[in-house]
Design a protein around this nucleic acid. Structure first.
Length: 415
DNA sequence: GGTCGTATCT
DNA sequence: AAGATACGAC
């Protein structure tokens, strides 16, 4: 690789989709020369605006100028640095709170956290989602250890060997997950999919397929919903509920027997909320480099429309997407375990070629032999005998982390 | 040892 | 009061 910027572009996985195979091949060559994978198509100001608004890092007019390609990484890196700084600030704030609480009790744990922070600051190798996930994992792990430790100490206390276990009683609360209407809608839809009697937190987490969202968080939310003690932020804003008569009192809960896998009984506004899950649609050809969405924004799936022959291009990025499997010409069916992105895409974009990326922890989404656990799936579902005008999008995909779902890529429709 | 539902905490 | 955590049960 002759480029001096190769060191900077090497870690950036960019995906190119173009209807013009020949042109795409050239672009691939050029971008690969600089360590990317890429594309381009018609330039459109409105589309550019929307793409940028939707989180694209850069909207590039075709043909790609070599200088732009050469320095493409700077746009991505700038965004990443900005996001990293914001994240670091919030983490510092969080760390201050933790220090206030823990001071002397959890020196070891704080050191552990500091280690995490060092990793977090490494923007070349890490991304937001994986950080959230890791933080959760660490947090949960610590929680479990604390719990076991407390149980053990409790046991010891009962046996008269230890007298003071309060040192382990310090609780470090992690940052709260904001259950937005959108996230809740996803949650509710997963409940619908799983069905009455099968609504278990673990399954819900898997179906929701939201990176960083933990089973415990879902369980907590499920508890709130089952007792009808959760309202969307909008509802909270406009009508404050008088002290609850609707939810079960503690004594009532104690007296009732455990019901496993039950679905929350309240279903209001589900359809309305579901509408928030529809994805932005563009009706022009496009070329853009995708960015990442913030954690609080709706999780739009990466979607793209390609011609079947783009799979040839796909082969060109096979090498760099070794963990990605392709499912060509398949029909997306509603089935347990399939993420909503796929379901919604199939429902909304019938007859279209749909590509979506999904990060799943342990569920198999397609029949691809190359699918392995903890991999990304890239499904290109292409109706047979259909041709489409071209479209080009650039995805910034970090294979080493769970960034895929955070990519907010505006899909485009071609008629 | 993992997950569940419920109780309790912040 | 939302969301995290603790905890006993399975």
């Amino acid at each position: 690789m002759a480029s001096t910027c190769y060191a900077m572009t090497e870690g950036l996985h960019v995906m190119l989709v173009d209807h013009d195979e020949e042109n795409a091949a050239e672009m691939v060559d050029l971008l690969e020369f600089y360590g990317y994978k890429v594309v381009s198509d018609e330039y459109n100001d409105l589309l550019a605006k929307k793409a940028l608004k939707e989180g694209a890092y850069l909207f590039v007019k075709r043909p790609l100028n070599e200088e732009i390609v050469k320095h493409l990484w700077q746009f991505i890196l700038t965004k990443r640095i900005q996001k990293d700084e914001v994240r670091k600030e919030s983490e510092d704030e969080y760390q201050m709170n933790v220090d206030d609480i823990d001071k002397d009790n959890f020196v070891g744990d704080n050191e552990k956290l500091s280690g995490e922070k060092n990793n977090v600051s490494d923007i070349e190798e890490q991304s937001d989602n994986i950080h959230e996930a890791e933080n959760n994992i660490v947090s949960n792990g610590e929680c479990k250890l604390r719990r076991k430790s407390r149980r053990k100490n409790s046991k010891e206390t009962n046996e008269g060997e230890s007298q003071n276990t309060t040192i382990n009683k310090v609780v470090r609360r992690k940052n709260c997950t904001k259950w937005t209407a959108n996230l809740h809608a996803k949650f509710m839809k997963s409940l619908e999919l799983l069905g009455e009697g099968s609504c278990y937190p673990k399954q819900i987490v898997e179906v929701m397929n939201v990176p960083g969202l933990t089973r415990m968080q879902v369980a907590s939310h499920l508890q709130k919903c089952r007792s009808d003690n959760w309202r969307s932020p909008e509802e909270r804003k406009y009508n404050r509920r008088p002290s609850s008569n609707t939810s079960l009192s503690d004594s009532q809960q104690k007296n009732s027997f455990r019901k496993f896998g039950t679905m929350p009984h309240f279903q209001k506004n589900i359809s309305q909320r579901n509408s928030e899950l529809t994805f932005p649609t563009l009706h022009t050809n496009s070329t853009f480099v995708s960015g990442e969405s913030s954690t609080q924004e709706p999780l739009y799936p990466p979607q793209f429309h390609v011609q079947p022959h783009h799979l040839n291009i796909g082969n060109s990025f096979n090498n760099s997407f070794s963990s990605i499997s392709y499912n060509v010409g398949g029909v997306i069916q509603q089935q347990r375990g399939v993420s909503f992105e796929t379901l919604d895409s199939s429902q909304q974009l019938q007859g279209s070629i749909i590509g979506s990326t999904n990060y799943r922890s342990d569920l198999t989404l397609n029949n691809g032999d190359r699918h392995t656990q903890n991999d990304y799936n890239l499904n290109l579902n292409v109706p047979h005998g259909t041709t489409y005008p071209g479209n080009i999008m650039l995805f910034d995909i970090d294979i080493e982390s769970a960034t895929c779902n955070k990519l907010k890529v505006t899909n485009a429709n071609f008629q």
